[in-house]
Design a protein around this nucleic acid. Sequence first.
RNA 1: GGGCGCGUAGCUCAGUGGGAGAGCGCUCGCUUCACACGCGAGAGGUCGCAGGUUCGAAACCCGCCGCGCCCACCA
Length: 882
Amino acid sequence: MHRPIARRPREAGARGRCGYDPALSSASTPRPDGVPERPSLEGLEQKWSAAWERDGTYSFDRSAPRERIFSIDTPPPTVSGSLHVGHVFSYTHTDAVARYMRMKGREVFYPMGWDDNGLPTERRVQNHYGVRCDPSVPFDPSFEPPEQPSEKEPVSISRPNFVELCLRLTESDERAFEDLWRTLGLSVDWSMTYTTIGPIAQKISQRSFLGLLARGAAYQLEAPTLWDVDFQTAVAQAELEDRERPGAMHKVRFTSARDGGEALIETTRPELIPACVALLAHPDDERHAGLVGGEARTPLFGTTVPVLSHPLVEREKGTGLVMVCTFGDLTDVTWWRELSLPVRSVLAPDGRLAEVPWGSAGWESADLERARASYGELAGRSINQARRRIVELLAESGDLIGEPEPVNRAVKFYEKGDRPVEIITSRQWFIRTISQQQLLLDAGRELRWHPPYMRARYEDWVNGLNGDWCVSRQRFFGVPFPVWYPIDGDGNVIHSEPIVASDSQLPVDPSTDVPEGYGAEQRGQPGGFAGDPDVMDTWATSSLTPQIAGQAGVDEELFAKVFPMDVRPQAHDIIRTWLFTTVLRSELDEGELPWGNAAISGWVLDPDRKKMSKSKGNVVTPMHLLEEHGADAVRYWAASGRPGTDTAFEAQQMKVGRKLAVKLLNASKFALADLPPQAEELAHPLDRAMIARLAALAAEAEASFEGYDYARALQRTEESFWWYCDNYVELVKGRRYDPSPEVSGPVSRALRVSLSVFQRLLAPFLPFVCEEVWSWWQEGSVHRARWPEAAELAAEALSAEPDREELALEVTAAALAEVRKAKSQAQRPMRAAVARLIVRDTEERLAALELGAGDLRQAGAVEVLQTEPGEELAVEVEFAEE
RNA sequence: GGGCGCGUAGCUCAGUGGGAGAGCGCUCGCUUCACACGCGAGAGGUCGCAGGUUCGAAACCCGCCGCGCCCACCA
């Protein structure tokens, strides 16, 4: 039995009134004739970034109350490196969240910093200007770099002059970065930028250091320190990385001092035999029980060393007997400390074996002449040269047992270095971390991590700390330690009694500034003073970015408004450095977390899933990308990378993003161009169902953003938008063009409301195209419009039978899809007329379909629509004669 | 050695207790009155392997395999 469906749409159901969102109600203002004939993405970046700058769209209003402010501890990119796709990727994530928060009514504190201090800049400046920093050279206010830089004979200049050149060079880098960020559409307030070498950063960094010093949380110590022999500076545990290097295991004979018996050890570092201070066995190792407690003699040098036991010795390794040197690795440091061993150091800071005073205290030998002769073969040589030579000497003396056995082993390198780090005793500044471990673990648990599993990396790191944080570097372009040391009458520098800078002096450079109570002429003189020659580790300043951006101690009112910050966005590879040190400094200085949330982003991998890096030659320059695909398209790709997840670089995804942007242009044009006046309320069940769906969508996108899951918000919104274009828009076309205002008025309203929602939901991701389509019909920036409220949309869509209407939308769209399928399979055009359409489905679904029947007939060009009960949706299509 | 994450269509990925999905790519069709930077359709999967829990598992539990990363060791 065929049952025709009534053609007339049902009367509108009951609906309630509610307070309107300003953006919703502004849709009722007369439409300006702002819809272009051929909408295009071309030039939107320039057009809108200029407009945003002119209108101060993103300027931070510091008069906002504290609870409304959302503050972001933006990562300051290293300006002396070049920008790469990874930057674009992660900064887009932050920007999407910032834009969401702004639309939610938060006043967003979103500054930008430039990390310009540190080694990378130093190296560039040295090469670029042909200069070399020498802190002993006096400041020359009129210094200009040579016109023809000479690499062979660099000009020695003072630290302030050197720093000035660093600033000059980084300034142009910073402009290039800002250009890129503006083109990408970061909603940063560009009046709030800072640099990590600028006076405010220096002042805050030095003041924090002096506070730590006064409270005993910073101290200096002459101690074994990780050391890079090329840069000749101390480095920190956090700056180390493992690299696989080939080496060789050498079996070497020591002799028992008691009976001349053999004591065999295995080592990969035979060049350190002259630095040997003990042999160790495991306490339970029967094999060496006879040796423990006695003494042994080193081969070639005849030094007498104790044989001791320690539980850290591994019995299975080598002979079970290990030589302790000062210092071969970090385990040596542990043994040296725990067993109170002496220091016998052979390695100079430049990575060569130093001259040592054989015969004097600590350098006694059973055969001094031989020790001197053997060591004479090594002194002055580099580590590798010395190793080769001592192997020859050991072979000649018969103390090398068998052939060296090649092994591949992981060696620790300074991450920017070319040779393995060594451990050298020197005087350095430290900040206490070991005594803070529990505090730091508690802080890590209090912090909300996105995604949560990233906390594990932090905890691993804190639990694995093996020494306090060494913060001094024997470099120049960094923040100096604000201390001097008195020089006694005999010319000795008294490091134990540092003269600290007064707070009003900050920032100071002790290499040129003079401590209070002294005159400049007393520098370096007996009875005078000497400036601390070192600078701080770059992380020692970067760890204060919340204080620097918020201008702690400089603009207290601002700082109180933005600190603690809401979120720290950063990549996972610097959890152990930047994140860890920032938590540490904030806990030490402020006694609280620096931020409530840590939003951790992944890396960009090349299509072969390798990390993109300059050395692999697989880096794509970001400006080129933006020019080729457009900023919105690139942002789309970036925003589809989930928090914390490494994402492959995919130009194809950018093309998809561009399609989405174009679709939004065209859908907006369809909805808005020559749109009839809107009615006061919705009238059609399908319209109400669509708006109800949008209410659910807005709620889901909001929940995702609140959990920093911008990717899910984008995915759901995009999915919904395509469904809307392909189904809803097709279904309502007939009513939209209907001459009767009774019909076109309500659908006009539905289109305005729905378009307004999509334009706003997509605005955090596609800021340029969304601003463009918003400008066609709305006042003000979409980026200052209010986020669509689910409750208001639900009220707009209020219906007497919401379930049936929702089902109607679903079934009608599904039936339309079936009609399209039939046309496609019959290879007919979509506008081909259908003489008769029979829809079979369950009773409930057919009852719902009644509500959408008019739209279905129109959209499918169906002349007669009939329904029959069935088990699931099926259609029968009779085409009209052609 | 410890930990974290991942393994779903050719590719990139969503789906976390009840119909195996999206986009891209591929194939076929369509000048459709917002859009050919378009529209419609189709093919394509033992959801890493094995066991368990459950009426029911891609999802939950146990084990294994593979990939990536972090930490530790690195005499």
